[in-house]
Design a protein around this nucleic acid. Structure first.
Length: 485
RNA sequence: GGCCCCGUCGUCUAGCGGCCUAGGACUCUGGCUUCUCAAGCCAGCUACGAGGGUUCGAAUCCCUUCGGGGCUACCA
């Protein structure tokens, strides 16, 4: 098979895209990039009761934010559009009519209530549930009788006897006996198409060569193949199927709001980097085969193959995502780190965005880069440099009101005041000389008091660097103020 | 219930008949380093679901069983 690979990601945006969807999108994208093929993005919005324009737009934005760029699809266009199924209704109607003409499909006049009743009976009788084929061979009289009753018909695909066998690239040969694949509906009574029709028609028309999707769709594959057959597609032209394992929640339940946040928008707000999310998600159900874990998007494209994809489901682990996010943050250049941090700082009201503020942020970023795991920790870390009405944290006040602390602060003030050069080296030299050498205090005791006085907290970035950034005037003022507590 | 998929440390995984007294990563625990917090380094804990085969030899192959999941819609 030497035709060019075309992979598609075709979500049905009935809500915000979640980590499971994104993992699928990531694998689709990585496979397309790995093979030098095309990545097609299609919106499956045939279920108009559940899909909204907002969710569609959110899906587009999420993919863009993650850097999963597509070659064909919404906004970028392509030769096989439109890429919203709601804009392709006439195409599906045409094919449905063709199937009807070919007798591959037929009108079914059964009402939902009747179908429900037969299902109930089947279940009670302990036989495989499914459409019983009642309307398969209706006579003209029966049809007009139903119509006279005012019944609306759906279009149902005729599933011939036999079985469907296909090779799943991840699971191997999979076979379904048609006894368990009942005739299925292609078109609703209102004339709108169903997934089973639209997905197959589009994959053929859009010349998709590889279908990498969630394993929940595994058992719908025989139906999809049935549509290919009715369309006259030769079996050698069927796309290759690969059903990806699920991404599960902390317990073994499916991912949901209940266990861990699932919406990508949430991760974005929390300060996770797209590259970290993709890196972590790539490790869920796939591995490069060696011990490498921290990989770039570029490396993922180079390394990704379907053969290395697992067949078993993976549990989502927030802790590991955080660890990877921390690694990615540490790997950021200063300018990148600044770019990611600024929005969080302004949103938190720490800075307004003036040049001098940004310059100070940029100077301070290096000392916190290895201390945070998520970008949303930046405001809290740098807050002490910008607050107008500085105050020591309530919990820490009592730690600097004892005699030893008072001495430390008094002495520090005295030693620091005459300093003409204000940088972390001069500050450290001065403080060490008086507090450690002369007073004989333990560094953690002595510097701890100064830390609380100047940064307001027992936890802060490195003390001397922090004081350098704070400036001499503010540092001394804070120490003096602490003495009055 | 039926059909289908899946089953290695707590979690993600390496492993594709001998290199496995099962390796790596995250988490956790202890230690080193240290101005706090981190980062870094070192050490430790913990796994082939169970039972049968096949084989000189099985985490790797086969069967059964148990467990988990998906589907069973005029959802996708």
């Amino acid at each position: 098979m030497d035709k060019k690979v075309k992979v598609r990601f075709a979500p049905s945006p009935t809500g915000d895209l979640h980590v499971g969807n994104i993992r699928t999108a990531l694998f689709d994208w990585a496979y397309a990039r790995h093979t030098g093929g095309t990545f097609l993005f299609r919106i499956e919005d045939t279920d108009t009761t559940r899909v909204t324009d907002e969710y569609i737009q959110a899906a587009i934005d999420t993919l863009k934010w993650l850097g999963l760029n597509w070659d064909e699809g919404p906004e970028v266009g392509g030769d096989n559009g439109p890429y919203l199924q709601s804009q392709r209704l006439d195409i599906y109607a045409e094919w449905a009519q063709k199937f009807l003409d070919q007798k591959d499909a037929y009108h079914c006049y059964c009402t939902p209530a009747e179908l429900e009743a037969t299902r109930e009976a089947q279940r009670a009788a302990n036989v495989a549930p499914g459409y019983d084929g009642k309307c398969r061979n209706l006579t003209a009289e029966q049809i007009s009788a139903y119509k006279a009753e005012g019944r609306e018909a759906v279009v149902r695909m005729r599933m011939p006897d036999g079985s469907t066998t296909f090779i799943d690239e991840i699971r191997g040969e999979v076979s379904f006996d048609h006894k368990f694949v009942p005739d299925f509906v292609l078109v609703r009574a209102d004339g709108s198409p169903l997934y089973t029709l639209a997905v197959a028609v589009d994959d053929v028309l859009m010349k998709v060569t590889h279908v990498l999707r969630g394993e929940d769709l595994l058992s719908s594959t025989p139906r999809q193949i049935r549509v290919y057959q009715a369309m006259g597609v030769k079996s050698e032209d069927y796309p290759v199927f690969a059903h990806l394992p699920f991404v599960m929640g902390q317990d073994n339940a499916k991912l949901s709001k209940r266990n861990g946040e699932v919406s990508i928008a949430w991760y974005r707000e929390q300060g996770y980097l797209p590259e970290a999310i993709c890196n972590y998600l790539a490790l869920l159900g796939w591995s490069p085969g060696d011990d490498r874990e921290n990989i770039t998007m570029k490396e993922l494209c180079e390394l990704f193959t379907v053969e290395k994809v697992h067949s078993s489901p993976a549990r989502f682990d927030m802790k590991k995502l955080e660890a990877i996010n921390g690694d990615k943050i540490r790997a950021l250049t200063l300018d990148e780190f600044l770019k990611w941090s600024l929005p969080f700082l302004t949103k938190a009201g720490i800075i307004t965005g003036t040049d001098s503020e940004i310059a100070l942020v940029k100077a301070a970023l290096p000392i916190i880069q290895e201390r945070i795991v998520k970008i949303n920790e930046v405001p809290q870390m740098l807050k002490f440099l910008f607050v107008k009405d500085f105050a020591v944290e309530a919990d820490s006040v009592s730690k600097i009101t004892d005699d030893v602390s008072k001495d430390v602060l008094k002495r520090s003030l005295k030693e620091l005041e005459p300093l003409t050069t204000w940088n972390h080296d001069s500050i450290e030299a001065a403080l060490r000389a008086c507090l450690i050498d002369e007073m004989g205090l333990k560094p953690r005791i002595a510097f701890g008091a100064v830390r609380i006085a100047t940064t307001g907290s027992t936890i802060s970035p490195p003390l001397f660097e922090s004081m350098e950034l704070l400036g001499k005037e503010a540092s001394l003022a804070r120490i003096a103020a602490a003495l009055t507590l």
